[in-house]
Design a protein around this nucleic acid. Sequence first.
DNA 1: TAAAAATACTCCATAGGTATTTTAT
DNA 2: ATAAAATACCTATGGAGTATTTTTA
Lengths: 100, 100
Amino acid sequence: MELQQIKYFLALSEELHFWKTSERMFITQSALSRQIKALEAELGVQLFERSKRTVKLTEAGMFLRDRWHPMLDEINRVHMQARKIHEGASGFIRMGYPGL
Amino acid sequence: MELQQIKYFLALSEELHFWKTSERMFITQSALSRQIKALEAELGVQLFERSKRTVKLTEAGMFLRDRWHPMLDEINRVHMQARKIHEGASGFIRMGYPGL
DNA sequence: TAAAAATACTCCATAGGTATTTTAT
DNA sequence: ATAAAATACCTATGGAGTATTTTTA
């Protein structure tokens, strides 16, 4: 299970349309289809019900959408905070060596 | 940034030793070194200070360790819950077709 | 000089693209 | 007939292994 797959899943869970989602995620419909399938296989959880003309979330899919979405936001927030700490730290080092 | 890299990072943040960590994660020291480097590059954040004989966490590294660790636990918990929902749902379907 | 991390090179697994097939309307 | 998802096939990127180099204690 990789973050990229979760991002694909969240996008598809909003669009509920493989083609539109693949465009939005800058991959092909084919690649998206396979990634979603791989995610479902690895989780052992069916995420969508495809009736060949419509795509909708399963109950487990809705559950994961509701949990994963805020988690990815949190990952981004934490990343940004870590950058600030890093920049603060390296800024401090630079201040210690004026002129370099 | 991928979950596998975060797992490598968390393991290394506990061991503070590339060789021991690589053994524990079932990869080579070389692969671990590159993955940590790739993670640092992608985040734009230095995670460890290597003084060629010792490895220690930077301030940003400590921050990320403290945030990411519970997040990965949460991901696992959510996964397990989703499996239960899936099994419940498919179990229910089976109950609707007794004999199949 | 010994222990530990980084690097150069190689190989392979897999993510992604193109083209095609299948299916429901 | 058309729109949409799945699949077969191919390519290329990058993750991992082996061997080697670099570094400092």
